[in-house]
Design a protein around this nucleic acid. Structure first.
Lengths: 160, 160
DNA sequence: ATAAAGTCGACTGAATTGATCGGGAATTGG
DNA sequence: CCAATTCCCGATCAATTCAGTCGACTTTAT
């Protein structure tokens, strides 16, 4: 699983969509303007998201995109893997041609690690992000954490 | 935080190093051959790892690289961020020039999400990977001591 | 002195990123 | 029906990153 700004764009756009789909389909032009992402680029991303059946499209005036399922049922991992090319990552791609003493340590290690990464991102869904974002914009309740780790902090309390 | 094959190479090479440093410094030529990574490319990666003080070098015959500290004290996150360019990620980079109604949803969302990713990778250290790899190659038993992550609802709650 | 090893900088081809453009097809409102 | 709106698709592009290569250099053990 790759993690770049491309996936970030997709997650951001999906969140914008999720927060606004109550008033019917959301146009890409709107998302592009609000999130400052190129419209044509968004079209490419949403082409993939639609083919992965994460969103559904409505053509014509008044059209746009909606989530294809409940926000609770769309994970961040699904969004990212939908738009990112599948990072092959193993040079011995299943062929086991790395017959040295370690017998493909690379493959074992990375598949395990990337599996754990995926599991984590798969445990975060769109609905949680919506709640988190609503809390921020409406109540502006931001909890700063200055306790444990010095240097990096500023965490936000997520309401459940 | 970016996640590509570059970081994977670095983690793999560091693990190879960790598993062999008992017999003194490990040469990059050895790592390159065992892990099938270009020597010159490894040199670039280890240049960064050395400048980040994750490894120490010994020049001359019999030289090579050693870990700069205990394997328990080197996290996967440290390795990856050492070799990857810092992914800027925010188009409103601190400048807050995204003054629309959402007021920089992008920044808040992604910094929170990427922070959680970093925390996770920072919780995995080289020593764990060594144990896991040793178990695999000798007993072929996979240890999942880390898997007791809480469920979805608990995951959202950011540690305070 | 020689050889083994790290160090450094420049360079390269391929892929990916993010964006632009032009031309469609579907559908709605008038 | 017609025109505007919106999704859809393909080609193309500059910039960046990836992964690797090369050549020259420094340090040090024998």
């Amino acid at each position: 699983m790759r993690l770049t700004t491309k996936g970030r764009f997709a997650v951001t756009a999906m969140l914008d969509l999720a927060l606004r789909q109550d008033n019917g389909p959301v146009t890409l032009a709107g998302v592009a303007e609000r999130q400052r992402i190129s419209l044509s680029y968004l079209e490419q991303l949403f082409g993939k998201l639609r083919r992965q059946e994460l969103v559904a499209s409505v053509r014509g005036p008044g059209g746009g995109y909606c989530l294809a399922r409940d926000a609770r049922n769309i994970s961040v991992a699904q969004i990212i893997t939908a738009v990112d090319e599948p990072l092959d990552a193993t040079q011995c791609g299943g062929k086991e041609n790395c017959l040295d003493e370690h017998r493909c340590m690379t493959h074992d290690l990375w598949s395990s690690l990337s599996r754990r990464m995926y599991d984590y991102l798969d445990s975060v869904n769109l609905h949680e992000l919506m709640v988190q974002q609503r809390d921020k914009t409406t109540h502006r309740v931001v909890v700063h954490d200055h306790s444990a780790r010095p240097g990096v902090s500023e965490m936000v309390r997520v309401q459940l």
